[in-house]
Amino acid sequence: MNDALPAPLDVRVMNMVATILFVCCAVGLLAAGSWWFLRNPAFAIGRIVVHGDLTHTNPMSLRANVAPRLMGNFFTLNLQQAKQEFESVPWIRKAQVRREFPNGLAVEIEEHQARAFWGAESSPTLVNNFGQVFEAEADDDDDSKLPRLVGPEGRSLEMLQMYDQLTPMVKPLESPIDLVALNGRGSWRLQLENGAVIELGSGSTTDVKARLARFVRTVPKVAAQQGRKVDSLESADLRQMDGYALRLRGVTTVSAETAAARAKAAAASAARSTAASRANATGRTTTTTRTPGRNN
């Protein structure tokens, strides 16, 4: 039996070199083909289809705004980065992006639904129906009628929920809520559209609602006692333990000390007037004057 002779060393080296060269060429061709395929202009993003109920934006302006910022083509585009670019546009709350072969994107858009302004009058921020604060320009008549929430950062959802609970409670006051404010000490304040200010005080939501309910129930009778209606309300302070302080348009109120001082002054004046009248009555005399004339 003949044993096969091993190939000479130079032959083995040549075979190895040939194999390596073949593999390198194959990898190079594959890489070049992939590079050409991925960079082919035919796969550049050329179509963006926008879906969703859009009120404050329109698909054309959205595409024009976002398309220049998208990096890559159909195959290399980072969908998460594209999602963030769409969500950075004002009024866009959420975006879902998917590829559509061969060169398109389909984008599902959800807009913010504005419920209130947030912060000071000059602030461009709003609160959506999830209690999230976002920055956008209010451009519709309906948006300009939104209430304003002013409070500490991170409390927007709590304040929106409080607004929703107090809104039906103030209907008997014949003026809707224009502003809800919460200070750093946890004290709540309302301002109605007619300018009336109601200090609700601090405490749990139940406590605040109880104080407002008592006020709304009793203030029409109090106003009627002064010949006024509830729409004459200027301010109310509900932070009292067993009542509230009230100011009505056209009704002048003074402190207890001032009222007592005025009553004392009025009594003293009346006493002086009475004394002067009596003195005049006692010191009065009758004088008869004769007119010269002929004797009868």
Rank of each mutant, 00 (worst) to 15 (best):
T125C: 15
L54K: 00
E85I: 07
W36V: 03
Q96N: 15
R99L: 03
S88T: 01
T55V: 15
F37I: 01
L62V: 00
G104L: 06
M60V: 14
A82S: 03
A42W: 09
T76A: 14
W35A: 10
R47E: 15
V89F: 01
V97T: 00
E111M: 04
G33Y: 02
I92H: 02
M60D: 15
T57P: 03
M71C: 14
A95S: 08
P102K: 05
F101W: 12
F74A: 05
L70P: 11
S61K: 10
M60S: 14
S61D: 15
E100P: 09
P68R: 07
R93E: 01
L62M: 07
T76Q: 11
P68N: 02
N129C: 09
W118L: 05
R69W: 01
D53I: 08
R99V: 06
L77A: 14
E87R: 02
L77D: 11
A116L: 03
R99T: 01
E100H: 01
V89A: 05
S122M: 08
V49L: 13
S61V: 04
L126N: 04
P102T: 11
G104D: 12
E85Q: 03
R98F: 00
L126V: 09
V50S: 11
N129R: 13
G119W: 06
A95K: 01
H56W: 04
P124N: 07
R63P: 04
N65R: 14
